[in-house]
Design a protein around this nucleic acid. Structure first.
Lengths: 202, 202
DNA sequence: GTCTATAGGCTGATAGAC
DNA sequence: GTCTATCAGCCTATAGAC
């Protein structure tokens, strides 16, 4: 009797379809434009059907955030393998900013919409938020070990400031298309240069 | 016959009352919660009356942005008078971040809501946005002249990165109350230390 | 100028039939 | 499980009476 399994599978498929479509809609039109009705219509179900898989709209947002953050992590991953800290800084910065600008609406949902969602990412500790932050802490420690950053500054706030700086560049570019007149590349270049000077090889 | 003047005055008073109440509501509950109905009720007029003074909700938002940005400018002004560039950097940073955290909903409206509003601030060139930016450019030039920032970086992108960094700190603190675990003061301290080393008096 | 009334939409969420 | 129908509310904006 594999009928329970089949039902489970079908159920999971509907859930996945809801999420896939929700993601599409958010990417295209932003989270505000994601309504239960439009979502239902898009997957060709009635609005009520969605509530069998998600408690409410917030639950969908949370699932999308989790997914979005995993995409961000995946995007950063290759850069984490660069051994020279100063180069790793630049690679991570490029990857982070690239993600934000290429997926503006996802980025907005993750970091610029509701404190609730953003907080969730960082509260689920060891996964999403914590992992990414650890990447930055390690980077800062290596930068200091390799003489690119003053050791008189504490690594934790340094890593936080690093994140804040990148977030500032991304979010300003997103909410104010005309202000930072410099290209994204120039901004990242300038920011990373400020953060870490290239160590003089002795 | 001063009756036209009286009418003009009354008209201006109603307009001012609308803006005052709108500001209050935004400060208390955020821009999203500002609706024409609630606004009308609060000033004890009918919704239709508001449309005699403002074309639509967006026009109110623009007026509030202008006002908010002037408040920000006023808040920065004292710091601009500090002659030692490194100290001015710190004073400006404190003032900027202080404004953002004390008036979170105003800050959100100015810089984190709709690109349209934020863009307006910077397009009206010589006033609001441009003025503030000039303050930062002058700061960077002085920092370079006083040996606190490398002259190998261009002043314009440097000033933009400075703004982005401060914006990053404020907006992360606003949208993610738990993430930057460090205190605002520590973050600003760390950020300004990264931006400018204290020049060694020769 | 200010009102009432209303058009013409939208929303999240749920009860109850099948 | 899925639907239809609907509740109960919100919104911006405007027409037309006073």
């Amino acid at each position: 009797m594999g009928s329970t399994e089949r039902r489970e599978r079908q159920r999971a498929e509907v859930r996945a379809a809801i999420l896939r479509m929700a993601r599409d809609m958010v990417v295209r039109e932003g989270f505000e434009a994601l309504t239960m009705r439009k979502l239902a219509e898009a997957i060709e179900y009635s609005p009520a059907a969605i509530y069998l898989h998600f408690e409410n709209r917030d639950a969908i947002a949370r699932a999308l955030c989790l997914q979005g953050f995993e995409e961000l992590l995946a995007r950063l991953e290759p850069a984490t393998r660069e051994p020279v800290a100063a180069r790793r800084l630049r690679a991570l910065a490029d990857a982070y900013v690239g993600f934000g600008l290429e997926q503006p609406e996802t980025y907005r949902l993750l970091f610029m919409t509701d404190p609730k969602y953003t907080t969730d990412i960082f509260r689920s500790a060891e996964d999403a938020g914590g992992q990414t932050f650890q990447v930055l802490v390690r980077l800062v420690q290596d930068l200091q070990a390799q003489g690119a950053v003053s050791t008189s500054l504490a690594p934790l706030p340094l890593a936080e400031v690093l994140w804040a700086g990148l977030h500032g560049v991304v979010s300003l570019k997103l909410t104010c298309p005309i202000f930072p007149a410099s290209s994204t590349d120039t901004l990242v270049e300038t920011f990373t240069a400020l953060c870490a000077r290239i160590p003089t090889t002795p």
